[in-house]
Nucleic acid binder design. Sequence first.
DNA 1: GGTACGATTGTCT
DNA 2: GACAATCGTACCT
Length: 216
Amino acid sequence: MSDRSALAGPALLVAPRLLGARLTTVLDDGTVTVRITEVEAYGGADDPGSHAFRGRSARNATMFGGPGLLYAYRHLGLHTCLNVVTGPVGEPSAVLLRAGEVIAGVELAAARRAAAGVVRSARDLARGPARLAVALGLDHTWDGRDLFADVAVHLTLGTPSVEVHSGPRVGVAGPGGDASRHPWRLWLPDEPTVSDFRAATSRRPRARRSPSGTAD
DNA sequence: GGTACGATTGTCT
DNA sequence: GACAATCGTACCT
C-alpha cells in the first residue's frame, strides 16, 4: 500500500496513521524533519468545527482537492496551521497537525523559531500547530502542495502506533468538540512534545468597535 | 460595503 | 489564568 492510499479516507480513520509519521521540508536554508506526535481530525459538512462545514470556498478549496495535499491557512492573521487532506476529491476531510518532535535540523528549527518569537526549550520547537509550521519553515503560501510528489515538502508514514490516546478537540466548543461522539484529537502517549490541552474557551464578549470612535 | 470572529500564541498579572 | 495581537473570511445589511 502506498503512503497516499494509506492516507485516503475519513479523517477519523486516517488520523492515527499520521501519528509517528515524518514530515520533512527541504528549503534554501536547510532541511528539517518533524515526527508527528499529535493530530486532530476534521470532517466536512457534518463537522461544525471544520472549515468545510459551510461548503467550499476560496480558502478551504484545498480540503476538496484529494488525499495527500497540504492544506495550510493563516489563523488570526498571525499564525499558520498545517493540515493533511485525507478525503477523496470533492469530499472535504483533513487532519490538523497539532504538534511534533524535531528529529532532524534541530538547530535550523530553533533559529526559525527564535526569529519568530521566544524559544524556551527544544521540546517547544514544534509543540503547537503554529510552532510546528514555523519550525518547518512553512506558511500559508504552501497551501495545496502535494506531500507525496513535492521535493520541498514531503510526508513519510511510519509504522502505525500500537498505543494512541484520544480526547476532545481543542478550541472547538459545542457538539463538534464533543469527544463522546468521536475521538477527534489523537496523540502518542508519553510524548513531551504533545501540546497542552486547552478546552474551548468561551470568549468574553469584546467591547464592540465603535464606528465613530465614540462610546455609544 | 461593513462587521464579527477564529483549528493560536505570547505576555502580563 | 486572562487577554491582546492582527487580518482574512464569511455572513449580514
